[in-house]
Simulated scan of single mutants.
Amino acid sequence: MEHNSCNAGCDLSKFDGIRPFNPEELPAVYERLLEDTQFRQVIAYILPGAPLEAVRQKMMACRTNLDFQFAFCYDFLNGLLKKTSAGIDMDRAAIDKKKRYTFVSNHRDIVLDSAFLDKLLIDAGFDTTCEIAIGDNLLSLPWVKDLVRVNKSFIVRRGLSPRETLAASRTLSEYMHFVINEKNDNIWIAQREGRAKDSNDRTQPAILKMMAMGGQGSVVERLAGLHIVPLSISYEYDPCDFLKAAEFQLKRDVEGWKKSAHDDVVSMQTGIMGYKGRIHYHCSPCIDDYLYGEAAGLPKTDVFDAVAAHIDKEIHRNYCLFPINYVALDMLGGTALHNDKYTLEDKAVFEQYFAGQMAKIDIPNKDESFLYERMLKMYANPAVNYLSAIERA
């Protein structure tokens, strides 16, 4: 079997196009960012009234990417949570703050899923955050690409030919193994490419196949080398629900319709600034024991599907469900089977919220009944999957 591990003697330059910036590269990147008009506008929004020279000095004082996160991102996230949520918490009982993990999570918000995890890890006493996997489809603006690489992101290349995809996947996997085992940092990666628009969260086996390209030994040993932790992310409200519903209809009605770069920016802005209600993160146990136990006895051809199903079950059973999830489930089925989980007031609040979000959808030939069902499913599916997972537990 071919080994693709990257030990201390290997050529690290192959990661240069995807990795976060190294500390010695940061001053030049800071200067480049500060010269960009759009970045200056972002800074003026985040730090209103702050003189640019003061911002420059604050940036230059950040010797590492982690310093930058503490100096700029942490306070911004705290302020954002005060304005756009009813609070956030994390159950991390199953993980050890002295160890390093690859957090594989369901994907609710393009920007905030990983950002909130970073904040929660710091609050929990971890001495580092995560390196974040981000698709290059979101990085069309050079300053955004610079900023995310300052903020500990590594780049997943998309839209390549099959041959290029294979090579890029191998490099990506080798980099992930290098981060966990030699840089001694954590990783966050979504369980699938792009968000599950209907909140029916499923891990793509292809993500696991990519992860197993790096490392050494059997497929099970390579996956275990990344110390995967299934992470459940639960938002009470999804600010992008109406945008996702519109996407469903546009994909149905317009042949070849695809989101534009502008659509991605609107989704990011809406997700960041919109109201999210209560937010809960839940860390399941690291799957190493499962890999060396149950998965080790499986035929090689079945391993990726089985591991994906195990991650899904862990994510689903550790969702934090809110009354509105059960309201949506009953509304979708036209029943009252779960009315012990919510009050009449909960239902009225949700119906009012729902009507408001539906009114925001502005597309040609707006199909109210189709959009209504699609949006209900976004809130009902976490309850469907949770109930299924605890039945099988």
Results as ranks from 00 to 15, higher is better:
4 N>A: 05
4 N>I: 06
10 C>H: 07
11 D>T: 02
11 D>C: 05
13 S>K: 11
15 F>Y: 01
19 R>D: 05
19 R>L: 04
22 N>L: 13
23 P>Q: 08
34 L>T: 02
38 Q>W: 01
38 Q>K: 04
38 Q>I: 03
43 I>F: 12
56 R>H: 09
60 M>W: 09
71 A>K: 08
73 C>Y: 10
77 L>K: 10
78 N>F: 12
78 N>V: 11
80 L>V: 08
82 K>I: 14
83 K>G: 06
89 D>L: 11
100 R>E: 12
101 Y>K: 05
103 F>R: 04
105 S>W: 05
108 R>T: 03
110 I>R: 01
121 L>F: 02
122 I>Q: 13
124 A>R: 07
124 A>H: 07
130 C>L: 13
131 E>A: 09
134 I>R: 02
135 G>W: 01
136 D>F: 01
141 L>K: 00
143 W>F: 01
150 V>P: 01
153 S>N: 01
153 S>K: 00
159 G>K: 07
168 A>T: 05
171 T>E: 15
181 N>R: 06
184 N>E: 15
190 A>K: 02
218 S>T: 13
219 V>R: 13
220 V>W: 04
222 R>F: 03
222 R>N: 03
225 G>P: 03
225 G>A: 14
227 H>Q: 12
231 L>H: 03
238 D>Q: 04
246 A>V: 04
251 K>R: 13
252 R>P: 07
254 V>E: 13
255 E>L: 12
271 G>N: 07
278 R>M: 14
290 Y>E: 12
291 L>A: 05
294 E>I: 12
296 A>T: 08
299 P>F: 08
308 A>D: 02
313 K>F: 11
315 I>C: 05
322 F>D: 09
326 Y>H: 01
333 G>F: 12
338 H>Y: 15
339 N>T: 07
346 D>L: 01
347 K>D: 12
351 E>K: 10
353 Y>C: 11
353 Y>N: 14
360 K>P: 07
361 I>T: 09
363 I>G: 00
365 N>L: 10
371 L>H: 00
377 K>R: 13
383 A>Y: 02
383 A>I: 00
387 L>F: 15
388 S>N: 12
390 I>W: 10
392 R>H: 08
392 R>F: 06
